[in-house]
Simulated assay, not measured.
Amino acid sequence: MDFMTNAKKYGVRAILLQGLTFLSVLTSAFMIWKGLSLFTNSESPVVVVLSGSMEPAYYRGDILFLNNGYSPIEVGEVVVYKLKDKPIPIVHRVLKVHTQRETGEQFLLTKGDNNSADDRGLYNPGQLWIQRDEIIGRVKGYVPYAGMGTIWMNDYPQLKIGLLGTLCVLSLFSNE
C-alpha cells in the first residue's frame, strides 16, 4: 500500500504511535544490553562463534555467554579477547598464564582447540602475550547454533537489508 493511503486510513497519530512503539522496542533492547554489560563486567556479554577454530568445544554459530569477573584467569579457561586495531574478537582457550610477582598483572597465551599453533601469529606484531585488559570475557555458557542467523546476515548483506526493511514496514503498518 501507498504511504499516503495508509496515513489517511489509520491517521497520522496512529502512524506516529507505531513509530514510537518501534523506537521504544529499540531503546529497551539497548538498555537490556547495557544492563547485561554492567552486570557481567563485559563490553559484550554475548558473542557468536564465527569460525571453526574452537571445534569440538564450540562450533561456528554457537552463542556464548560471557562474564569478566576480577578473579585470576586460569589455564584451560575459554576467553574472548579483542586486540587493538583488530575489529573482530577471538574465542580461544588459555594455554599459559604468566603473572608478574610485583604487580600481580596477568599475561596470557591462547590457542584455538582446532588450531595446530598458539595465537602468537594472530597477536599484533611484537606481541607475545595477551594482557588482562584485552579480555572481553570468559565463557560461562552457550547455546549451540543459535547464532547462525547472525552469520548468514554477515555473509549475505542483502538478507540483512531485506529483513530490516521488512521489520520496519511491519512495525509501522501493524494494527496492534
Score class of each variant (00 low, 15 high):
G121S: 13
F3C: 04
G112V: 02
P87G: 00
Y145E: 12
K8W: 05
L164P: 04
N6S: 14
L164R: 07
Y145V: 07
P45F: 12
K96M: 07
A146H: 08
V48A: 13
Y145A: 00
F39D: 09
V79H: 12
Y142N: 14
I15F: 03
G149M: 04
A29I: 11
E55K: 13
V46D: 02
S28R: 08
A29D: 00
D62H: 05
I15G: 03
S171C: 07
S44A: 15
S71F: 05
G112N: 04
H92R: 08
G76I: 06
K160D: 08
G61M: 11
I88S: 00
A146R: 09
K9P: 06
L36A: 09
I90K: 05
N115F: 08
T5N: 09
L164D: 08
D133K: 03
I161Q: 03
G165P: 12
S71C: 11
G19N: 10
F3S: 05
W33G: 03
Y81P: 01
T150R: 07
P45D: 00
I161Y: 09
V47G: 00
I90G: 04
E77Y: 01
T5Q: 14
I136M: 10
V79K: 13
L17W: 02
Q131Y: 05
Y142S: 13
T150C: 10
P87D: 05
F22Q: 02
F30W: 13
I136C: 11
F30E: 15
G61E: 09
P45G: 10
P72D: 10
I135E: 03
G162N: 09
L36G: 01
A57H: 05
S37L: 09
P72G: 06
Y58F: 15
S42A: 12
E105Y: 08
Y58A: 00
F39S: 14
W152T: 08
L17G: 12
S53I: 12
G112K: 00
V97H: 00
V12W: 14
D2L: 07
A29E: 12
Y10S: 02
K96D: 14
T21R: 15
N115S: 02
S37H: 01
K96V: 07
Y142G: 09
L164C: 06
L83K: 07
V46I: 15
L83P: 07
N124W: 03
Q158E: 06
